[in-house]
Amino acid sequence: NILMVQIENEYGSYGSDKEYLFINQKLFKEAGFDGLLYTCDPAADAKNGYLPGLLPAINGLDNPTKVKALVNSLHDGKGPYYIAEWYPAWFDWWGTKHHTVPAEQYAGRLDSVLAAGISINMYMFHGGTTRGFMNGANYKDNTPYEPQISSYDYDAPLDEAGNATAKFMKFRDVIQKHLPAGTKLPIVPAAKPAMEIPAIQLNQTAGLLENLPSPKSNLTPLTFEELNQDYGFVLYRTQIQGGKNSMLKLKELRDYAVVMVNGKTVGTLDRRKKQDSLQLNLPAGQVTLDILVENLGRINFGKYLLQNKKGITEKVLFDGAELKNWKMYGLPFSNIKPIKFTVQKQQNTGPV
């Protein structure tokens, strides 16, 4: 049975268009969802993201008094009270250690929420994994760009294999306290057996520059979207006159770049670290400049949802002058069959 239907997710962190929310509500009702419709937003954005008449669920706040006061202020002074995202830990992003939170740190908070008669959705209850390049990213004005890793382990009560953890057992004890008299939780299943995988030998390589597809040419760099490419990498290539030692600048790089001169890697630039410039000492003569750009993940929360173009999104400058006449090689890696691998050791000076 469907008990509740959420018409939007954290929309208040992006906008406050009530007409848009009303249209969402109308669509769900016309589709036959006649149960409890609701919105959910972080506490600071709940006023923007709720629709009068619908239940405003709260994310990230678990102080019972504050949760009830906020819901009451937006819902005619009444509940029900629902924390749509109650966090038992947090996800990981590149450049940080794996996030773990001891169960003891959250068990008391869970107890107080349930004791106050507040319903919760534990996010995440079950760890998981994204596939391919389908990770996301966070970005706020007061924090750097944070691309999430593929694992969504989250230090969740159930691990990625679906097995109960010590945190699960601790939370289970808390939940048992708040069940009706005489009600017992079912027995926890035994951990599932795991297969043993022998060591995998990686004995083939393929030089990236030796496996480029046909390029698309343009006066200025094209974004992933302009190339009709969603994920992966794009190699940007142009020819410039060498014999200079000056600064290379990529305006609005999205997100990570490997810079090569005549096929040799000379440096990297990382949006996470707010890097956009690199000193280049070019040899004399005509020089091939390659910039391999990786899409590290699109922003999936907040006001920058529509500022999500990838690649070199503005322009490239060297010695203060804009570089033009680019070739773009799309490398989505959605099909690796055309790539020519070899078991021979290669002296690669660029990416493999």
Rank of each mutant, 00 (worst) to 15 (best):
F333M: 11
L209R: 13
V258W: 08
L55T: 09
L289V: 06
D111G: 10
G320Y: 02
I7T: 14
V5S: 08
M169F: 09
K184V: 04
A31C: 11
G117H: 04
K170L: 13
P351M: 07
D290Q: 04
G132T: 13
F125E: 00
M124P: 11
D155K: 08
L185S: 12
S112I: 14
R131W: 11
P221H: 01
S214V: 05
G128W: 08
A257S: 15
H75N: 15
Y304V: 11
N228H: 15
G182L: 13
G95T: 03
Y123M: 00
T313H: 00
A46Y: 08
E314I: 00
K249W: 00
S73C: 07
G232K: 04
K244H: 05
G320P: 05
K315I: 04
T313N: 01
L292V: 13
L212E: 15
A156H: 05
G136A: 12
K315S: 12
A107D: 14
D92H: 06
D34Q: 08
N24V: 03
N59C: 02
M169Q: 13
Q25Y: 08
G302Q: 08
Y11K: 00
F233A: 00
Y106D: 12
G60I: 06
T100I: 02
G108E: 09
Q344H: 12
D34H: 03
A46S: 05
F168E: 03
E226D: 15
Q239S: 10
H126P: 02
G12T: 09
K78E: 03
H98M: 07
V188S: 10
Y11W: 10
V234I: 13
G162I: 01
F33E: 07
I299D: 08
G108P: 07
T349E: 10
R172K: 10
L61P: 11
S112T: 15
M169K: 09
D155A: 04
K315M: 13
K216F: 04
K249S: 02
V343G: 12
Y152L: 06
E30K: 15
T265G: 03
L185E: 13
G95L: 06
G108N: 09
D92Y: 05
L51T: 14
A115P: 01
M124W: 00
L179T: 06
D41L: 12
L250D: 01
Y82S: 06
Y106T: 10
P186M: 02
P42T: 08
L179I: 04
S214Y: 07
T130M: 09
Y236S: 09
T143E: 06
T223N: 14
K140Q: 14
Q347C: 07
K274D: 10
L51F: 03
N203H: 05
L54K: 14
W326F: 12
V259D: 07
G32H: 07
S150H: 12
T220C: 01
T183P: 11
D230L: 06
N63W: 00
Y304E: 05
L250G: 01
V258T: 15
T183Y: 03
D41Y: 15
Q279G: 04
K170Y: 03
G127V: 04
G95Y: 08
M134H: 03
L323S: 12
N121H: 06
T130S: 13
I2A: 07
G320A: 09
V293E: 02
N121I: 05
F33Y: 08
N300V: 11
R109V: 15
E196D: 14
E8A: 02
K337V: 02
V234C: 03
W90Q: 06
A84Y: 01
R298H: 13
Y38M: 11
E226I: 12
Y106E: 13
P213Y: 06
G297Y: 05
L289H: 04
Y106K: 13
